[in-house]
């Protein structure tokens, strides 16, 4: 990749929030006193029960919703009226419903919708259109109408549309929850590729596999930040999991149940590994 704006400079924060709040009624804010920072290139899972304010939080970052208090700084720019345009340029968002974010009548038009708004030259648009449709494996679908695509294909189009605008940060707002299992796995592979290319990823999710693949978990509860920890720490904290309406991946559940029965075992990486650890001697019964 030859992009210069997504070079991995670990350490500096691309997103920082200081005492951020949101709500129309100051007595009952939807979000209150959120302070956090995300370094460049990090993959962050945002978890929490429905109605905890996850989706609101990410919409504050590019001013799709107006914050009622606090400071938001994205890529070194404080979020103000004048910087909204440039901040929206550095944040891409993929939403839950694959249908409702498809602006164009064809795949090509949808990808061009964002590029034309950037006032790019024909050659530049053409190059990005080719590059990103190829990357997402949708170049054969360019003239298709959204009604002819599966949910997974539509989400690929949404991702291509956004990556073609070259944001450094990509936010996924429950982007996998309406997909079938195969498409969810494909999305996970795309995300891993994006991490390797240095994108900063914020992902609202309930999916244990997606959380496990990420670097860090922010747990929201009742409109405030309840925990900031690693996926492994989250999956070991039964109380927090229950509060966030989550479950750990199956191998973690199994290891926990085995430990409860006094069988010492680590979380197995595969079923084969479990069998090999539990029954190291090759006896047959």
């Amino acid at each position: 990749m030859k992009e210069t704006n997504i070079v991995n400079e670990t350490g500096d924060a691309v997103i920082s929030l200081e005492g951020v709040a949101f709500g129309y009624d100051p007595e009952h804010p939807i979000l209150h006193n959120i302070t956090l920072s995300v370094p460049r290139g990090q993959w962050v899972s945002i978890v929490g029960p429905n109605g905890c304010g996850k989706s609101t939080l990410v919409k504050l970052l590019n001013a799709l919703l107006p914050k009622s208090a606090g400071e938001i700084v994205v890529c070194g720019q404080p979020l103000e009226e004048e910087t909204i345009g440039s901040i929206r340029g550095s944040i891409g968002m993929v939403f839950q419903n694959p249908d409702n974010q498809f602006v164009g009548a064809t795949v090509e038009e949808d990808i061009l919708f964002g590029l034309e708004g950037l006032c790019l030259s024909y050659d530049e648009m053409d190059e990005r259109l080719k590059l990103y449709t190829e990357k997402l494996g949708i170049s054969h679908l360019l003239s298709k109408h959204p009604g002819e695509l599966s949910g997974g294909q539509k989400q690929r189009v949404a991702i291509a549309s956004i990556l073609a605008m070259k944001p450094g940060i990509v936010i996924f707002d429950e982007a996998s929850s309406m997909l079938d299992e195969g498409s969810r796995n494909e999305l996970l592979v795309i995300l891993q590729g994006m991490r390797d290319e240095g994108y900063t990823i914020l992902m609202i999710t309930h999916d244990a596999d997606e959380i496990l693949a990420s670097d860090r978990v922010l747990a929201l509860h009742g409109g405030s930040l309840a925990a900031d920890l690693t996926p492994e720490e989250l999956f070991r904290d039964q109380e927090l999991l229950a509060r966030c309406h989550l479950r750990e991946p199956y191998p973690w559940q199994l290891a926990r149940e085995l430990q409860r029965l006094g069988i010492r075992t680590d979380v197995p990486a595969s079923e084969k590994e479990l069998i090999d650890t539990l029954w190291p001697y090759n006896y047959s019964k």
């Binding site: 029960p49 429905n50 839950q96 429950e174 929850s177 309406m178 309930h206 244990a208 229950a242 309406h245 989550l246 479950r247």
Partner: peptide, 8 residues
């Protein structure tokens, strides 16, 4: 159960 959280 589509789009519900794991506990629900």
């Amino acid at each position: 159960t589509a789009t519900l959280d794991p506990l629900s």
